[in-house]
Each structure stands twice: as structure tokens, then as C-alpha cells.
């Protein structure tokens, strides 16, 4: 027992030397496990506070060069701690297990969980306050508000968005994309499902017969039996090769997504 205690003490002392050398002067050290929040922090000009991000944080280009603490759903607790963060931005529910451990270590958390576009504005203001970029935050929010205005249309086109083909995963009521589609004057055919990303059946899609199909994965629908009679296929309104990040990430680039959708819906 005494032996074990001696070893532990020895290990700690070695490392006391190590950390005293690396002690940083900057007080605010943010590890962001949320790709959207990483984008926001960059957009506000607070990137020098970012000491760690995930491999999913690929926008803007400079974000790729930040220290990586893991991927979105398997971040390494040890790498996070290694960066001695004063704040960790987390995304439930995917990161719930890591949130639980970070809470045990009493590390301050910024829990990013926007449920609608209004929530994004709030979170931008909050993080802007934390990194002392209130003005930039205000102008970003205003910019987004001005560019994300609801469009009224006489004829509402129905839209089917496909995230994966096996199984067929689409977007439901609780996703941003659903909100974005209605903002741009369209209607998600599965807006009645009270989930973010429900699994649906082929027959139901064919029955609901969307005017527009948007594929957010590399597959196509040319060889699908029974799909050829869809309104969207007849009118050649099947869209591929879109960047899913501009449609699914609750960050500044939603404006791009909005514009893209607006264009698709007016064709």
C-alpha cells in the first residue's frame, strides 16, 4: 500500500514539473466539441480562445488546424483535459457521456442545444458575451435575422429530404431543416413527425408524393422501383451534391442553406 502511494506521488511530482513549464497566460481557454459553435466563435473573431475542437470542425479552413480532441461522438476526455480548458462547449445528446464526466471534474460547460433558429441567436449572444465580442455577436445575429426572413408563396411546394438511403432517414418537425424549409415557403412532407431525424418507409414517401427531393447523401434514386412516378422525378426536381453542413449545422452558414433552398423552391 505504501509502495503504491509512493508511486502515485512520484508520478504526480514528475508532472508538476511538466505543467509549471506550460502554464499559459491567457485565462480563457475554450474547447469546442460543437462544429456549429466552432463556426460561430470563428465568425465572431474569437478563434484565439479556441484551444481544442473536434475532427468534425472543418469550417472555416483555419478550424482544421486547431488541436483536435477527438471526433464528434467519441471525444477523448484526456485530450480535452490536456488543453486545460476553462470552458468546454458541448452538444447533447451525442456527448452526454462526456458531459457527465466533465461535470464530475467541475469543468465549466457551455451546453449548446438549439431547438429552433431563435435559440441559435440566443446562443450566439451568450458565447459573444463570454468571449467579450458582444458587438460582433449583435451584428451576426442581425445579419442572420435579415437574411432568414419568411417567404410567403401562393403555391406551397412539398419537399422530401433524405439523409440516408439504408435505412431511409429524413428530417422531422424537430430539425432545423424543417424550419428552414417552411421559412423559404416550402413544406417538409414529414413535418408531422415529432422527431428530429425519423426513419420512414418507401411507401409513405411515394404516397406523400413530394414536389421536390433533396438527397444529402451520395446515392441516387434513378433505380428505385416506384419512385419514377413521383412529381419531383417527373418535373426533374431531384437535387444532389448539396453541402449538408449548410442545411444541418445550426450556425452562421444557415444563411447559405436558406438561399440554396430559396433557389430550389423557386425553380
Amino acid at each position: 500500500m505504501r509502495c503504491i502511494r509512493a508511486i502515485i506521488l512520484f508520478l504526480i511530482t514528475i508532472n508538476l514539473f511538466n505543467c509549471s513549464k506550460k502554464n499559459n497566460t491567457k485565462s480563457l481557454r475554450i474547447v469546442s466539441l460543437s462544429p456549429a459553435m466552432t463556426e460561430i466563435i470563428f465568425a465572431l473573431g474569437g478563434e484565439h480562445y479556441l484551444v481544442g475542437t473536434t475532427t468534425f470542425c472543418t469550417y472555416p479552413e483555419a478550424a482544421k488546424k486547431t488541436y483536435k480532441v477527438g471526433d464528434f461522438s467519441h471525444p477523448s476526455l484526456e485530450r480535452i483535459l490536456a488543453q486545460k480548458p476553462s470552458l468546454v462547449v458541448v452538444n447533447p445528446p451525442e456527448q452526454n457521456h462526456i458531459i457527465r464526466e466533465l461535470k464530475k471534474l467541475k469543468i465549466p460547460l457551455f451546453i449548446s442545444q438549439p431547438r429552433c433558429i431563435e435559440d441559435i441567436y440566443k446562443e450566439i449572444s451568450e458565447i459573444g458575451h463570454i468571449i467579450k465580442k458582444e458587438d460582433q455577436a449583435d451584428s451576426l445575429v442581425n445579419f442572420m435575422k435579415n437574411n432568414l426572413k419568411p417567404i410567403k408563396k401562393d403555391k406551397i411546394k412539398t419537399v422530401y429530404v433524405e439523409l440516408s438511403s439504408r435505412p431511409l432517414i429524413t428530417v422531422g418537425q424537430k430539425s432545423f431543416l424543417n424550419e428552414l424549409i417552411s421559412l423559404t415557403g416550402g413544406k417538409n412532407i414529414f413535418t408531422d413527425i415529432k422527431k428530429a431525424y425519423p426513419i420512414v418507409t418507401q411507401e409513405e414517401i411515394i404516397r406523400r408524393n413530394p414536389d421536390i427531393v433533396i438527397l444529402l447523401h451520395p446515392g441516387n434514386i434513378k433505380d428505385r422501383l416506384g419512385w419514377q412516378k413521383l412529381e419531383a422525378v417527373k418535373r426533374k426536381q431531384v437535387y444532389k451534391n448539396l453541402n449538408p453542413d449548410i442545411l444541418l449545422r445550426p450556425g452562421p452558414r444557415l444563411v447559405q442553406g436558406y438561399n440554396k433552398l430559396k433557389k430550389i423552391l423557386s425553380e
Binding site: I8, L77, E78
Partner: peptide, 18 residues
């Protein structure tokens, strides 16, 4: 398991690894 890892060892990391 106690010594190897991506982070520099300190009290907190040691707690983690133990």
C-alpha cells in the same frame, strides 16, 4: 495505462487514468 496517454500527467489526469 497510468503513464501513457495524449495528455501530460497531472493530478486530474492521474485521477482519470486510475
Amino acid at each position: 495505462s497510468l503513464l501513457v496517454g495524449p495528455a501530460q500527467l497531472n493530478n486530474q489526469i492521474l485521477q482519470l487514468r486510475i
